[in-house]
Design a binder for these strands. Structure first.
Lengths: 342, 342
DNA sequence: CTGTTAGCGCGTTCAG
DNA sequence: CTGAACGCGCTAACAG
């Protein structure tokens, strides 16, 4: 209970108090039955009394394992990153790992710097949404024995085990939902075509159109960076025209806020005047009135899968596949309606 | 460039390659001028060639400093925690510290467990939004030389340096704003009275009323936990009555979504039918139409201040004060209007 | 200015 | 089943 000296108790203190060698104390506390049941219990009791806590640094130096996992994301504003951080943190902690949070702002230099620091810390593993510009660093790390799991975005250069959303299928399902409601002119607001998700969602949209026998009209697509401003600009580009679409598919999550505002500013009522379908669910969409229908990209599932994969690799088994996809799922709420026009 | 052996290069390798003692290499890389400029540069060059990176674990074992900072928050859904995590992470990294992210869900047992683990990791410092039930653990840590900075909520038991929002003043300013617009019946939806912020915001509201010579009506106050459901329930309690308020002050951030929905379900138009003022700003409020006026509690400022304080303590200077307040600021947008009734 | 020596706290050989 | 000795990689005395 009380501290004999002022310092934290060390293994040596425990051994001294128990009148055994340090190594015996070590074995007793490890508890693998490498010591007599009697001394094991006695030493564990003494350790508890002294408030002994093993020094992670010393242990790590010896075992070459820090029990630290790097979590590298672009920010915490994005709901997928948030889910990833919360879930990964919780699950890894349950397995005795701690999470080092690193934010890169999607910038290559910050990412490189971060990765070097993480190597210095001797992290045991890494979950990262890569910028795409440090592929060699990442694959070096991975090959040198530190498992690296990619999430959300694929790094084209590094051949990492990567957990991705099923974006082609999600965008396809969303578009088909709108088509099934009779919409023929569907505006698409989507991410930059330089990103995997941007390209794949556009592809899913096009495929659905094609299967429905509707020709693709590029002027109905507005691509832009992941920001509310893109949604606002998209509204201007898509809605202020002679033949505006009867439905909007917002497959760029961050731009949803801008779209909502763009619609409000034009006094367009959802779903009376226009149907609205968004991508990636957030609590706000469910609470909104009318509640916004979404294609949920499965951020939680991705977080769990990425954690599963990392844990597996940490236990020694190498990856069987190098790409995992998490199914998207359509959540119908109140923002989409049967097309009333002709 | 290339790896001579398969392992990461160690200081010993550098010393060997440079034909100097390990300690010389150490000093040269530290760069404090404790070695001749010539060898310093030579060794730094060799280290770079070998791709040498110091082992943080070994260094920490020696220096008794891990360069790790624990960041303990309840979740990442709350905007204040998010801001704290992003800002603290970024600023601490710039100072050579890494951030261990720990999520407690506001539960005492998880917090206690987390704190023990952080002690095991020999963190150099801690920023925490405490549950309030582990005060002795926290003050022990703080007294034993590991600086602990509290944020957002005060732990009544531990006497930590704490950075708080100026909630009494913020709620006062918000209420007065509504009063100045002529509102006399102002509904308040506020946090649980067991929390500091819940109590202080109610107090600010009451003081503004009192200064305006309006008697306090307890039935106009709905207190509840930090969740959207509270907002919905608050609407039911406050709006479905014979004499509903003409303005709503939502001083429980998480419940805002529920309030927005409650208003929509009652076909109450903001600000025509009712004025709405929220607490704590988020991007959604600015993009919403009508844009929601808020009392910004200054999450970013709190994050910066908490980081400042921690950094100061890390540098050795002890705190002068033990409570810091960050000013709240009223941001007028479009959701409040002059009272039109009698 | 540099080399030698001695640990930091722990796990893990090797003997006994 | 237990103890003694060694080393993980690094910094910080102490000498020279």
């Amino acid at each position: 209970m009380s501290s004999p000296s002022n310092r934290a108790a060390t293994l040596r203190d425990v051994a001294l108090a128990a009148k055994v060698a340090v190594s015996t104390a070590s074995r007793a506390l490890a508890g693998g039955g490498l010591t007599s049941r009697a001394t094991e219990q006695r030493i564990q009791r003494i350790a508890a009394e002294l408030g002994y806590r093993p020094n992670t640094l010393a242990r790590g130096l010896k075992t070459r394992s820090s029990r630290l996992i790097g979590l590298v994301v672009h920010n915490l504003a994005n709901a997928s990153f948030r889910a990833l951080a919360e879930i990964a943190q919780q699950r890894l902690r349950a397995e005795g790992y701690q999470v080092l949070l690193c934010i890169t702002a999607d910038e290559a230099v910050q990412e490189a710097e971060t990765l070097n620091t993480l190597m210095d810390q001797r992290v045991d593993g890494l979950i990262i949404c890569p910028t795409g510009d440090n592929g060699s660093l990442l694959s070096d790390l991975d090959k040198s024995g530190t498992p690296v799991i990619g999430v959300i975005r694929r790094d084209e250069e590094a051949l990492l085990e990567t957990v991705l959303a099923a974006d082609p299928e999600g965008a396809f399902a969303g578009t088909r939902h709108l088509l099934a409601l009779g919409h023929k002119r569907i505006g698409l607001i989507v991410g930059r075509q330089e990103t995997t998700s941007g390209r794949e969602r556009l592809a899913g949209y096009r495929r659905a159109l094609q299967e429905a026998g509707i020709s693709f009209d590029p002027s109905l697509v507005h691509a832009g960076r992941y920001a509310p401003e893109t949604g606002l600009a998209g509204c201007a580009a898509l809605l202020d025209r002679a033949d505006p679409p009867s439905a909007l598919f917002v497959a760029n999550h961050e731009s949803s806020l801008g779209v909502l505002r763009g619609l409000a500013e034009r006094n367009l009522i959802v779903p009376d005047d226009i149907s609205l379908l968004c991508y990636e669910d957030v609590p706000g969409f469910e609470w909104q009135r009318p509640a916004i229908s979404v294609v949920d990209s499965g951020a939680e599932a991705m977080a769990h899968l990425a954690t599963d994969r990392l844990l597996q690799r940490l236990r020694g088994s190498s990856g069987t596949s190098n790409e995992y996809r998490v199914g998207a799922k359509l959540i119908e709420r109140q923002s989409c309606r049967q097309f009333a026009g002709t």
